[in-house]
Design a protein around this nucleic acid. Structure first.
Lengths: 201, 201
DNA sequence: GCCCGAGTGGCAGTGACTGCCAAGACTCCT
DNA sequence: AGGAGTCTTGGCAGTCACTGCCACTCGGGC
């Protein structure tokens, strides 16, 4: 499905898929525009489809749910985090690895302004926030086995590893919330460090 | 709406409201039974209403959403947590206050078996888990101002307070997940303590 | 020219949820 | 007791996200 016809490799962007890419882009932009203009709940799939020039049916083939129109497919997010963690040097502990992963995740956003707008939208829409949190815990579960390896040495058990991962994500969310409170002032990663410092006495 | 006609006080359970109570109870039990029997997604509102002997419309008047049929209204939960935090002695720090609140929350479940079943259901159903997480962050936001008072003394700023609250809840969730992994072995609060200990070095 | 496979659109259907209106149940007042 | 006013309930129709099905179209290989 994600692959081209033969999946020959990297050498076949197929000229077909390029059109698909473009259509997806168009839908995404239209959706984001309408969401920020009139709010998430107030925007219907029908409207997005109409303004993007595709049928509802096609829109749902590109993006499985309305929530997927914000923040993109979670796959990309998850793989970025797991890859980053995997790439960390072996002598880096779990906390450092997680921090690096968050840093990488933040770099996904084109500009701070765009990130601010998107975060605000997610944060202020109950259903979107719930969906985001769901993705987040799925992320945590993916990351857990990777980090357990780094923690096993120091006699940390599975439950404790889970608590550590959960805490890192919680502090990241807290940092994001605080950053939103201040209308994008300062650096999220700094806020994360401050929060974690307070937690760890 | 929640109050009787005149709201005369505690002496008027109105005999009317008692019927309401009973109906709500009936619906709740029916829903929980069907959910555990055939799964959450596979159970329709129509079926619950039919088997509970009320109309769909009435069911939605008692419980605003399908998710509310599990874990009850978040109000009760939130007030229990906030009340407990407020009741903590002034010399208790934020961590102790939060721990006490979690302990109180756990005591809401009739039996560990019932809690296990319910947790499993929520944990294994994406939409339910998302809804739970949404309620959870709303809880955190309610608790934040209460705990800020206890933290202000030690030079903790707002962002850090948020991180601390978020961490406590994250560790509580992690403890619950671990408890579920072990099919209800051990005590959730113990697991919470262990997780938090690992986090705080 | 013909077929083939993939992408698309339309249509009907499901399920959660809401607004509206009429009928019944209970309370209060006279 | 009788009637007015209020609260609760049920049914109905409608909205919206989402899915399955089928027919159409488009580009490429024979």
């Amino acid at each position: 499905m994600a692959q081209g016809t033969q999946g020959k490799g990297a050498a076949t962007p197929t000229l077909w898929d390029r059109t698909r890419q473009l259509a997806a882009q168009e839908i995404l932009q239209t959706a984001l525009r309408l969401f920020t203009q009139q709010g998430y709940e107030e925007t219907t799939i029908a409207q997005i489809a109409r303004e993007a020039g595709v049928s509802q049916r096609t829109l749902f083939r590109y993006f499985g749910t309305k929530e997927d129109l914000i923040g993109g497919s979670e796959e990309r997010f998850v793989t970025l985090l797991t890859e980053t963690v995997r790439e960390q040097p072996v002598d880096a502990d779990a906390w450092e690895a997680l921090r690096a992963a968050f840093k990488a995740a933040l770099s996904l956003h084109a500009t701070p302004e765009e990130a601010l707008e998107r975060f605000r939208l997610v944060h202020h829409t109950d259903s979107l926030r719930a969906a985001y949190l769901g993705k987040r815990v799925r992320c945590q579960e993916e990351l857990l086995p990777l980090l357990e390896a780094r923690l096993a040495a120091s006699g940390t058990n599975r439950g404790q590893a889970r608590a550590i991962v959960a805490t890192a994500f919680a502090c990241f969310d807290a940092a994001t919330a605080t950053w939103l409170d201040g209308n994008g002032q300062g650096d999220i990663l700094d806020l994360y460090d401050q929060g974690l410092a307070a937690v760890r006495s």
